[in-house]
């Protein structure tokens, strides 16, 4: 109950801030930046995998947001609107870099690959805990479409219906891409653990 009230008052104060920002008030822009900067920067950092690029992307995303804020009418949640914009800025950047061909309008199904079943290694599971740095490196290896959905769902905690709005895809598509992202991530982590085991002689 208290949590619901707090969420409601948070939303109300954010609505006020948006209205004030729409009138050009600096304090409102600064407050909106403060509220959302961590999630936006973290998303950019995990998507781009580079600090300097993440800074530029965060800057670009907030600039675009504030330039367009007058057009925000509250049809969707502000954070969803913001994250859609951030994801587009990042995917556009990756597309410009030419690293991956990324569809901005829908998740690229060309990334789909059947899961390989490796018989004979049933018991080789990831052990205990996953190192944060290793996990981040593995996330960086994911193709951009998978990566965006994985980060939004498993790291940032968005629901599939919100991700569908952010990524402009169906809820079903979001679910299936997430599953494939997890499998791909698992494959990468197991590969890295295997390499580490070979190097150190320790069990993976």
């Amino acid at each position: 109950m208290a949590q619901e009230q707090s969420a409601a008052s948070k939303a109300a104060s954010e609505t006020q801030l948006i209205a004030r920002a729409q009138h050009g008030e600096e304090e409102a822009f600064a407050a909106l930046f403060e509220i959302h900067k961590r999630r936006v920067y973290s998303l950019c950092l995990r998507m781009a995998g580079d600090v300097a690029e993440a800074e530029d992307l965060t800057q670009e995303a907030f600039l675009q947001l504030f330039r367009k804020i007058a057009t925000f009418r509250g049809e969707s949640a502000f954070s969803t609107w913001l994250h859609r914009l951030v994801v587009n800025v990042v995917l556009m950047h990756l597309r410009k870099k030419g690293l991956q061909k990324v569809s901005l309008d829908e998740v690229d199904n060309s990334q789909d690959e059947p899961v390989k079943r490796e018989y004979g290694d049933d018991d080789r599971r990831l052990m205990g805990s996953i190192d944060r740095v290793v996990l981040q490196a593995a996330i960086e290896e994911l193709p951009p479409g998978y990566k965006a959905i994985f980060i939004l769902h498993d790291v940032e905690g968005y629901e599939h219906n919100e991700i569908a709005q952010i990524m402009n895809c169906s809820v079903g598509n979001s679910k299936s891409q997430l599953h494939k992202a997890r499998l791909k991530l698992r494959e990468t982590l197991r590969r890295d653990a295997g390499r580490l085991a070979k190097t150190t002689g320790l069990p993976s």
Binding site: R38, Y41, R46, R132, I139, F150, V155, G157
Partner: peptide, 9 residues
């Protein structure tokens, strides 16, 4: 993944 900490710019 859920425990990955967000970072400040």
């Amino acid at each position: 993944s859920a425990e990955l900490m967000p970072e400040d710019p």
